[in-house]
């Protein structure tokens, strides 16, 4: 906290490239992890992305400064609003971690792995597509509606 001169409440921002690079790194790695099949890795990826986003809020809050307490010189203070937002986000990320871990645990308990399975219904459709089949609810009958009319009429209610 050596830089005291400028303020956090600038009307122009000169972003801190170091922090931007940290954001890029965390988000990139986090994304790559989030694309994994293992739910635990996905969670870790999300946590990394979350950390990256927290740093992003530092980028957008301008220069570093003194802690925002009344009594400090407002001119040397860091911007408190993004901090409040990040705090909210951090707490929500704790909730996320707790919930996703419980979910991973349950997934593991059910299927013996924490890998997220592919959707079974979608696999059925893909099977149909591969076999050049029609959908399962398609009426495959080739019969004309009129030629079999007599047969139909036999079942008609008459009084």
């Amino acid at each position: 906290m050596t830089t005291l001169a400028p303020t956090g409440f600038e009307s122009t921002l000169t972003p801190n490239i170091t922090l931007v690079l940290v954001v890029v790194g965390l988000v990139a790695v986090g994304t790559a992890l989030a694309l994994d099949r293992s739910l635990v890795r996905v969670l870790l990826g999300m946590v990394l992305i979350g950390n990256g986003v927290a740093v992003l809020y530092l980028v957008v809050s301008g220069r570093a400064g003194r802690a925002p307490f009344v009594g400090e010189d407002p001119a040397a203070m860091s911007d408190p609003l993004p901090q409040a937002m990040v705090l909210t986000a951090i707490v929500i990320s704790l909730a996320t971690i707790g919930f996703l871990l419980a979910l991973s645990y349950r997934l593991w308990q059910i299927s013996g792995t924490d890998d997220v399975p592919d959707d079974a219904e979608d696999a059925r459709i893909q099977r149909l597509a591969r076999d050049d089949e029609t959908s399962e609810t398609y009426d495959r009958s080739e019969e004309s509606t009129t030629t079999s009319d007599e047969r139909a009429e036999a079942g008609e209610s008459r009084g």
């Binding site: 921002l13 931007v20 954001v23 988000v27 990139a28 992003l56 911007d79």
Partner: peptide
């Protein structure tokens, strides 16, 4: 894809920061 997303966030952060013209 991860690298692309990271880069996108970085560029967005830079461009958006550059857009600031008023005090918060």
């Amino acid at each position: 894809l991860g690298a692309a997303v990271g880069a996108a966030v970085g560029v967005i952060a830079l461009v958006a920061s550059g857009g600031r013209t008023t005090t918060p």
